[in-house]
């Protein structure tokens, strides 16, 4: 990836963050923390990795994406809008009555959303089902799913991991948004989830641990995932919850709280400054 490409991805990710902050602000609710931590991953997937076409969102041969940590959808919606699935202005209606953009992803209401999700653990399994469908039909599409690290406390994630490994779903790639925080505190304090990479390896996955905010490292990891044959792959993406907004970064309190007027202005000013810096670089 050349520097122009990297800059463009950074620019898009910054815009996605602005969409997520605006959406949660206008909704007066939502999950900014985990949206901002995963924004770079979503951006990389939709603008670099996945074989998708916003003009043909139901193409049976497209790559699939499942946001298993469904609450992180505000920045995913922003990325889908930037990709052209629907107008960016839709973010302003997030979580409103009658809106296309629901509080958690709704595959029947939102173009580009491949699976409804929100109840933790289930998206990982649904992604396995999609990957299995590709294998049964001899199709070459790939399936990606972003999981939360807190989400990995759900037993179903490990049921899904066993299934993926048993059926040798090498067309499946999990990405764990490893921001280290969950609603009640640090993941390590709440449930002592540790050695995620080793755990997935023990379940039969190929694995890479990377900086989830580095597009270069994301590229290397996704390339490794594609080259990994005979078994599924997991990318443990070390991220910062609330990434991009200084006062939200690594703060557990920003899991599921919307910014107020003042915080919104401050957050947007910071993101606009970042955008300007990227555009001038």
């Amino acid at each position: 990836m050349n520097s122009t490409e990297t800059l463009e991805l950074k620019r898009l990710a910054c815009k996605a963050r602005m969409g997520a902050v605006t959406g949660t602000y206008k909704a007066k609710s939502g999950h900014p923390g985990g949206s901002l931590s995963a924004a770079d991953i979503f951006t990389y997937l939709y603008f670099k990795e996945m074989r998708v076409d916003a003009k043909n969102p139901d193409d049976p041969d497209r790559d699939r994406f499942v946001l298993s940590k469904g609450h992180g959808c505000p920045s995913l919606y922003a990325v889908l809008a930037l990709k052209g699935y629907f107008p960016f202005e839709e973010l302003e209606n997030l979580r409103h009555v009658g809106a296309m953009l629901q509080g958690h992803p709704d595959m029947k209401g939102t173009p580009g959303i491949d699976m409804s999700s929100g109840s933790l653990g289930q998206g990982a399994s649904a992604a396995c089902g999609m990957a299995a469908a590709a294998k049964i039909d001899g199709k070459d599409f790939r399936v990606y799913s972003v999981l939360g690290d807190g989400e990995c406390e759900e037993g179903q994630v490990w049921e899904a991991a066993m299934f993926a490994s048993h059926y040798k779903l090498d067309n499946l790639c999990f990405i764990v948004d490893n921001n280290g925080l969950q609603i009640d505190g640090k993941v390590e304090d709440v449930a002592g989830l540790c050695m995620l990479k080793e755990k997935f390896e023990a379940f039969g996955f190929g694995a890479a641990e990377i900086d989830g905010h580095s597009f270069e490292e994301l590229e290397q990891a996704f390339n490794a995932a594609r080259e990994c044959k005979g078994k599924p792959f997991v990318i443990i993406a070390k991220t910062v919850k609330g990434k991009g907004v200084s006062f939200m970064e690594d703060q557990v309190g920003w899991h599921g709280v919307a910014p107020n007027d003042e915080q919104y202005k401050k957050a947007m000013a910071e993101l606009e400054a970042q955008l300007k810096a990227i555009e001038e670089a």
Binding site: A126, A133, M162
Partner: peptide, 28 residues
């Protein structure tokens, strides 16, 4: 056999896997 997926003793996973298969046009 090529269209049968034994999910083991993991019913929750099985239901969501079935959902993923259906999302790709299968009738699970």
């Amino acid at each position: 056999p090529e269209r049968f997926l034994n999910c083991g003793i993991a019913e929750g996973n099985m239901m969501s896997v079935a959902a993923g298969l259906a999302a790709c046009g299968k009738i699970p």
